[in-house]
Design a protein around this nucleic acid. Structure first.
Lengths: 188, 188
DNA sequence: CTACGATCGGAGCGCAGGTTCCGGTTCCAG
DNA sequence: CTGGAACCGGAACCTGCGCTCCGATCGTAG
């Protein structure tokens, strides 16, 4: 790959990261190109489709969050850190929140990606959840789907409104615990 | 008003209810018109704007849900019924979920409506929350904004995924309680 | 029944955004 | 240095959708 091509590719990714974070998945490609200091044509040479660019970024985020729990699969509290991190990151990345939340209603072309994303996420989530449940930190009747849905929903609202992502994450965490000590405050 | 005009108005509302429930706020007006068995022009004579039609429907839903708690402002458990009902209705009405969740990022024209909606909702929510907190059913440090955000987020995912709205509502309710009896199952 | 005005329907306008195309430019092998 | 392949940029195209317009139609007062 030519050096200018590589440079532009990185610029595009960086620009898209910012633009999608602020404007969500609905942000126009033109904005990405403009912010990258590049023409739309260049964007489309590197990513065949808007969706492809979006997926590259979302996947990167998810991988980063999942990888952050590497080696902690046995730690009961790692589950809560995972949830907190997810909500926190999504709070400043609208596109991530949207992709996490909407898994029922997406076009044919997005289905494969959603399935892959869900698998990556849920595989790790299942490990962490199992550890947390075994240790009694999380009630036994909660399923991975429950957690996935709750995280998705919380992510969507984490970036707006008067509550911080941390507060919201703490409250749903308590709901999952099956009850913290009475009177415990949500952190934040 | 002429009788055919009234008939069409009702048909449009009914069609919009269904179309928006399935397709969310992004559903095109043409679909509404088609389902109502009417031309687009007719829709626009009754509702000056797509947004106006949408707001009519969302407001109706919110009013219905709020009114359902009339006279129960002192009942500590009414708060939970309110949350449950909200999430449950939004689970089969995408447009309601979208309007509830996205209160940061909306165009100029929607701002007044959002403000009004938030006020109606939060006024009643404040009453019910206060009663629940006074009786000790809900932890004292939770704010109306927390609850509003959590409801909004849960509503968004209530309609998709593997978890029922009731399960999700039960889990966040427990998070708000500050802990149910250990081992309690989320209903549903 | 008739006439008039309210109402209807859907073709069409304007705009926004995803995608394509191609002439000009830039990098690198020879 | 230089030829040509890869790359760049942005004008242009196409589709989808909110909304408007106006001739045709329908309900109702008289």
């Amino acid at each position: 790959m030519r050096s200018d091509a590589l440079r532009n590719r990185l610029r595009i990714l960086e620009a898209a990261e910012t633009v999608f974070a602020e404007g969500g998945t609905a942000a126009p490609i033109d904005d990405v190109a403009a912010r990258a200091g590049v023409g739309v044509g260049t964007v489309y040479r590197h990513f065949p489709t808007k969706r492809a660019l979006l997926e590259a970024i979302v996947r990167h985020h998810v991988d980063e969050i999942v990888d952050a729990t590497d080696g902690a699969e046995g730690d009961p509290e790692a589950f809560f850190r995972f949830v907190e991190r997810m909500v926190s990151v999504a709070g400043s990345h609208r596109e991530l929140a949207e992709e996490l939340a909407l898994f029922g209603e997406c076009g044919e072309e997005a289905l494969a990606f959603k399935a892959d994303l869900t698998e990556r996420l849920d595989r790790r989530l299942a490990c962490l959840l199992a550890a947390a449940q075994t240790s009694g930190a999380v009630r036994a009747d909660v399923t991975v789907e429950d957690v996935h849905a709750l995280i998705g929903g919380t992510c969507v609202v984490a970036g707006s409104g008067g509550s911080s992502p941390e507060r919201l994450a703490a409250i749903i965490a308590d709901g999952l615990r099956g009850g913290p000590p009475r009177g415990a405050a949500p952190t934040g």
